[in-house]
């Protein structure tokens, strides 16, 4: 099943083209890794999938992105609903400077207007799913910023889960974490694909190889416009890629 389909996506910042002709199918309940050197457009591409680039005034996009077959860049498409269905975890753990509870409750509270016991159970369920419930059940009123970085990042993941998304976008979610916390996040991702489709941007080759089912390799040849070099099953990309540039990158010859 294809969850998200990008067709001939071109993206521009003003007159500068930052993505050229990206076509990519993201499979449902699988992990797709977007890899490539800095500035290759992988993060920009990921942000096209939940229209987070909309707030950049000079940003424009050509081509189509479909979620379950519906074009998300259509004029009538509800962006608020899109972002509930396609959640996002950022590079740096960024909980709100509020309590643990309020962080996880944010989405359901403001968007779905959940209250009381319903809200409590959503918070509990979301924290359980990221393995934080045991640690934090007695600390729900604690300031989220007093948690360790690893806990903060999992809290951010719980904050996304509480909006009941279908797709989770992760922008280098472990780059600020130590190896143990990184492994926890990766284990979590493998558990979460029971229910969710995951797209992860990562600089870390081993991480992409360990965690993902599919890998897309992005590259820019002019330092500006990102292109999709190769896309395929992770095992194949890492063992017998078609493109010489992919070999060069994953063997560490550049990037």
């Amino acid at each position: 099943m294809i969850k998200i389909r990008a067709e001939h996506v071109d993206a521009y910042y003003g007159a500068k083209q930052v993505l050229a002709d990206i076509s990519l199918d993201i499979k449902e309940r699988q992990i797709t890794a977007l890899i490539g050197p800095s500035g290759c457009g992988k993060s920009t591409f990921m942000r096209c999938l939940n229209r987070m680039n909309d707030s950049v005034r000079i940003f424009s996009l050509r081509g189509d992105v479909y979620l379950d077959g519906d074009p998300i860049y259509a004029d009538t498409y509800d962006v608020v609903q899109l972002r509930q269905r396609v959640g996002m975890v950022f590079q740096r753990p960024n909980p709100f400077p509020q309590t643990v509870y309020d962080n996880v409750a944010f989405g359901p509270r403001v968007v779905a207007r959940e209250r009381g016991a319903d809200l409590d159970s959503i918070v509990e369920e979301s924290l359980r799913r990221v393995g934080l419930w045991q640690e934090l059940r007695d600390k729900l009123t604690q300031d989220a910023l007093s948690l360790s970085l690893g806990q903060q990042q999992r809290l951010c993941l719980a904050r996304v889960l509480s909006t009941r998304p279908e797709v989770i976008l992760m922008d280098e979610p472990a780059s600020a974490l130590d190896p143990i916390e990184t492994l926890r996040i990766e284990d979590l991702m493998r558990e979460l694909i029971e229910l969710y489709t995951i797209v992860i941007v990562t600089h870390n080759m081993q991480q992409a190889a360990r965690v993902s089912d599919w890998t897309a390799f992005f590259l820019t040849d002019d330092g500006l416009t990102g292109k999709l070099v190769e896309y395929g099953e992770t095992g194949q990309i890492f063992t017998q890629p078609d493109d010489k540039r992919t070999i060069d990158y994953i063997t560490g010859r550049f990037g």
């Binding site: 608020v80 509930q84 959640g87 950022f90 944010f106 403001v110 909006t163």
Partner: peptide
């Protein structure tokens, strides 16, 4: 504000809540 928007909040909800 970005995080609030990514969770499906309107700009006002982000302003009001965070």
């Amino acid at each position: 504000r970005t995080v609030s928007a990514s969770l499906g909040g309107t700009p006002w909800q982000g302003i009001r809540r965070v």
